[in-house]
């Protein structure tokens, strides 16, 4: 009698430090130049840049947020950077809902994951934000915003209003970073749930951690981007790697699968993932 039992949605997150091969692997899984197309019902999504999901929603908003993120880098404002990162991460819930609800994806593979990456990066941001904190800091951030592309800022503020409906309170770009780093004061086992609630996105079923030595990752990043600040980047990557370890240890029911990404070719990594991922 049973024909096609409705299949549940399976969520797989590819995580790891810069240079670990997430993007390459995601492209392969999505059907890159030499790869096969992604299977029917499988979506491979960018977590932070909705405009990089060709069939997905929120492209314009995502481009505005991408611009603001680069501007925050230029201004050296870690709290503004984290605020924008938060808005970017909040787009993922909509993207995922669209791909599963409208396009029928049953397996969602995300390059990064808002909750895991949020938890991994928050310690780094807490240190950086502590360096600029002060009673007049929110006003300084507002002044920074006033000097940025106003169309992009308006899009970000409109997105805050939209998020406010779900959260019950409209996020304030000048102060939301402080609220996010305060999540680190929660017991480790509670942080993922609290951040998932703020982001409106569920935890993945499987987190695939592309584990790589920091020196090798840095070599790859330098070959790709020509990153000049060797020591700074090495320190940052090492801390982010520690952040991932802590985040993955606190994910509760999420199955964590580690892949040694340093010596494996992209094709080998894909084969390992294909065996792991349902559908």
């Amino acid at each position: 009698m049973s024909a096609h039992p409705p299949s549940p949605i399976r969520r797989v997150a590819l995580v790891g430090i810069d240079g670990s091969g997430k993007s390459t692997l995601a492209r392969l899984l999505a059907g890159g130049p030499s790869g096969e197309q992604a299977g029917e019902g499988r979506a491979v999504l960018s977590c932070l840049r909705a405009h990089e999901n060709p069939d997905g929603p929120l492209h314009r908003l995502s481009r505005h947020l991408d611009l603001l993120s680069r501007e925050a880098d230029r201004l050296g404002g870690p709290d503004l950077k984290l605020a924008v990162l938060y808005l970017q991460m909040c787009t993922y819930a909509v993207t995922e809902r669209f791909f599963t609800g409208e396009l029928g994806a049953r397996v969602v593979i995300s390059e990064r994951h808002p909750v895991i990456d949020g938890l991994a990066y928050l310690p780094l941001y807490r240190r950086a934000i502590a360096g600029v904190a002060g009673p007049d800091r929110p006003e300084q951030v507002r002044k920074q915003l006033a000097g940025l592309d106003q169309e992009a800022v308006a899009a970000a503020l409109a997105w805050c209003e939209t998020l406010g409906r779900r959260l019950g309170r409209v996020p304030d770009l000048a102060t939301v970073a402080g609220e996010l780093v305060a999540l680190l004061d929660l017991p480790p086992g509670d942080r993922a749930t609290a951040l998932a609630a703020r982001l409106g996105t569920p935890l993945p079923d499987i987190a695939v951690f592309l584990d790589i030595d920091v020196a090798e990752a840095l070599r790859r990043v330098r070959a790709r981007d020509g990153a000049p600040e060797l020591h700074e980047r090495h320190g940052s990557l090492a801390r982010i790697r520690e952040g991932y370890e802590a985040a993955l240890a606190a994910l509760g029911p999420v199955r964590v699968h580690r892949i040694a990404a340093g010596g494996a070719s992209p094709a080998e990594l894909r084969a390992e993932l294909d065996a792991l991922i349902p559908g």
């Binding site: 929603p57 929120l58 492209h59 314009r60 908003l61 819930a93 909509v94 809902r97 669209f98 599963t100 609800g101 939209t162 409906r165 779900r166 959260l167 019950g168 409106g200 569920p202």
Partner: peptide, 26 residues
């Protein structure tokens, strides 16, 4: 088309109730 598409997504997201609603609704 992109403008129409994003307008529709925006309307849908704004209609979700506080808490984000149930993604398994249809």
């Amino acid at each position: 088309l992109r403008a129409r598409f994003d307008e529709r997504i925006g309307r849908a997201v704004r209609l979700l109730p506080p808490g984000g609603g149930d993604p398994g609704f249809g």
